[in-house]
């Protein structure tokens, strides 16, 4: 490993995760391409990107189960190449598959993971009780995991990853396939954990979840294309006005806007159009005026806040925008 990587990997420099030029190839395919990442201690870091962007590969390298092809990285001050086994004991990991034993009860699952993570015997009962409280599983201790509903299973899986009180947890699409209410409860739990000082790295493609993160990292085709807090990304990185328009002939309006050079992207969202404009350009009134000049009957046009999805798509080159939106949509409600 290079000296530069070692410098950035000190345990007390305020970063839980540091990578420099981290790269992973599978044959000729580059899954992660010179990724330089910094996750501060105690923050909730959202790792965003469509499927196949390289999120899971990055997490697997950070967890010490996949060796990087190139570059360096450290997790909690430990080099991911040299001491991956030490990292494993200190972190928690939860995947979208939940990794529960269906025929084991809630307590048996927690006990199993407590033993695997070497929670001292004397502390075990207390930790397990805390976890049951955290996941709101009181009264269900003797229920088999397979009999729990999605939301409970998800929170049990989370607490199984937390039972050894790790300082850093990696959550790989933890809310995939879970109902919206459970997703909200889940995020309340991890927000609470982050506020108490646990560093959390979570991958997601739900844009509403991304808004809850302290820092977002956008990854696309193995590269980090933007990083920052949701607010900073919106005000500084994005800086493109977004307008929503309702018109009588939506299809014609969309076609006209598409050809206008002030417009970067036009999207149809249910019964209205969502228009992303070129930077520092124009606003709702201009869009309405433009359409009216072309003979389109405009019912209304408003300036709106850009969504995280808008942000994400804006980093992608123009030809790919529609496809990436489609991918994001296919993954779940934005």
């Amino acid at each position: 490993m290079s000296a530069e990587g070692a410098r950035g990997a000190g345990p007390d420099d305020g970063f839980a995760v540091v990578t420099e030029g981290l790269t992973r190839r599978f044959g000729k395919r580059v899954a992660v391409d010179h990724l330089s990442l910094r996750v501060r201690k105690g923050e909730l870091y959202g790792f965003l990107g469509p499927n196949g962007a390289g999120k899971s590969t990055t997490l697997r390298m950070l967890c010490g189960i996949l060796e990087p092809s190139e570059g360096t990285g450290s997790v909690l001050g430990i080099d991911i190449r040299r001491e991956p086994e030490r990292i494993k004991a200190l972190i928690g990991y939860m995947s979208q598959r939940f990794s529960l034993y269906d025929d084991l009860t809630v307590v048996e699952n927690l006990t199993f993971y407590a033993r695997v993570y070497m929670v001292p015997r004397a502390l075990r009962a207390e930790r397990i009780a805390q976890m049951i409280q955290l996941a709101d599983l009181g009264g269900r201790e003797r229920q088999q995991a397979g009999a729990l509903s999605g939301g409970y299973r998800q929170r049990l899986a989370l607490t199984c990853a937390l039972v050894h009180a790790p300082r850093l947890i990696f959550l790989d699409e933890p809310t995939a396939g879970v109902d919206p209410v459970s997703r909200r409860t889940f995020w309340a739990v991890i927000r609470h954990l982050a506020d108490e000082g646990t560093t959390i790295v979570v991958t997601t493609h739900y844009m509403d979840e991304a808004e809850l993160c302290d820092t977002l990292g956008f990854i696309y085709q193995g590269q980090l294309i933007a990083q920052g807090s949701p607010a900073i990304i919106k005000t500084e990185t994005f800086r493109k006005p977004v307008v929503e328009v309702d018109a009588a002939d939506l299809r014609r309006a969309a076609a006209l806007l598409q050809d206008w050079d002030a417009v970067e992207e036009v999207l149809r969202v249910s019964t209205r159009l969502r228009v992303v404009l070129a930077q520092d350009h124009t606003a709702a009134a201009d869009v309405a005026a433009y359409l009216r000049r072309q003979g389109v009957e405009v019912r209304w046009a408003h300036d709106v806040e850009p969504s995280v999805e808008d942000l994400f798509v804006s980093f992608v080159d123009k030809e790919r925008k529609a496809r990436v939106r489609e991918q994001l949509r296919a993954l779940g409600p934005a």
């Binding site: 598959r97 939940f98 990794s99 990853a161």
Partner: peptide, 13 residues
């Protein structure tokens, strides 16, 4: 199949 092997691989076991 269940995905628990993945969790064990990530664990210090």
């Amino acid at each position: 199949e269940k995905g628990t092997l993945e969790a064990l691989i990530v664990s210090p076991i």
